[in-house]
Design a binder for these strands. Structure first.
Lengths: 206, 206
DNA sequence: TATAACTTTCAAAACTTTTTGAAAGTTTCG
DNA sequence: CGAAACTTTCAAAAAGTTTTGAAAGTTATA
């Protein structure tokens, strides 16, 4: 591990054409966007690099190879490979075959809604469904105690029952919101969007 | 000072009643719920213990002291203190004065909507507003390049411009959704809820 | 089949976040 | 004031996550 971060790997043997390191410098706008998206995505529970790589692909006119990405984002080959795979699994990046090239090229999913719906569906929904189930189970297990012979126990069970029901209701509402969002994403001109666009135009400050 | 975590403080002078360690064992339903909420909240970018502590308070008939929490969740005093402060800052837990008791007691905010709206407002909105601003800036910085003399540069700038505009639009929509949600939370019987409840009853599998 | 060109894997390193616990700080009361 | 009863702080430890880079694996052609 004598990788000094800057020291270039220097000449190997293959195509020496590629020596120029500058090849894929990001424009400021690209750097900025990939940064923001990286942050946003991290905030959202993914790896920052997922957002960065996706953004660079999204803003690139042509598909990029793993190495292009490695270069312009300064990541290791391993990181790029793993991150790309994750992005592929999430369906937000596609492999693209480029005529006459041996290596794989990648392009970003450009349909933002489709992308989001996929992620929401797999991740958020799973999470919320799990929560709903757990709450339901907790309610069932409390049922028994609600008829306990000890009045203190009974009162406590009653209170918990009510509160957990509240949580359950909230979770269900959340699920509905998600479902609506997903439906919207599929049809892409739909109720929620309309509904939102109808809402107060919301102050803009720029 | 020499607080060994498990060894009970033993007799002091005041209420020696408190010797029994078992005092506050969680019921299975409490354990389950605090676990789920902990997970959910962690998924959501908070600390798991925030969710756990909040849940225990939410399900407790009476306010609890820091030590109660320490005991029933098996945390260190420091962790409890810090987590409680965070919860207080988020306004999802309140301090409660209990007659005749020296220590502080805590209770959970029971108005779920209020709680959620506060969090959304402070956290999510800040994040999305930041993103919106960055996208707008990126667009401005691209403006210049759109009239570059180099056709390749121009084309590329054009594409990026379109795509970033797309991101911006999405972010704005997201902000609107959030705003609507927040408004809903404030009035608590409002458009979004109605809207959602009107939607297809969404299959349930239990 | 051999080889060159890529890609993937994975254990270790770097980094980040969370938790701990003991010491310092407060508050209340006698 | 002094001491007991609590609470907060914070540096260090533990836990968790991400990244690295070298080595093993794969695939396409010659």
């Amino acid at each position: 591990m004598t990788y000094t971060g800057q020291g270039a790997p220097a000449a190997s043997r293959g195509r020496e054409v590629n020596v120029a390191k500058e090849k894929r410098a990001l424009w400021p706008s690209e750097a900025a966007v990939s940064d923001v998206v990286g942050r946003l995505i991290e905030f959202w529970g993914f790896k920052r690099n997922m957002g960065r790589i996706w953004s660079v692909l999204y803003l690139s006119p042509e598909p990029l190879s793993a190495e292009d990405l490695r270069e312009c984002l300064g990541l290791s080959s391993g990181a790029v490979s793993m991150t790309l795979n994750e992005l592929l699994r999430w369906g937000v990046v596609r492999k693209v075959w480029v005529q006459g090239e041996r290596k794989d090229f990648f392009a970003a999913e450009v349909q933002l809604w489709r992308m989001i719906s996929r992620v929401f569906n797999e991740r958020e929904k799973a999470e919320i469904v799990m929560a709903i189930e757990s709450f339901e189970e907790a309610l069932v297990s409390l049922q028994k105690l609600r008829t306990s012979s000890d009045p203190a126990t009974r009162a406590r069970a009653e209170l918990q029952y009510e509160r957990i029901k509240q949580l359950l209701e909230l979770a269900r509402l959340g699920k509905k919101l998600l479902d609506t969002l997903l439906a919207t994403a599929k049809l892409d001109a739909e109720p929620l969007v309309r509904f939102l666009l109808k809402q107060a135009p919301s102050s803009s400050q720029a």
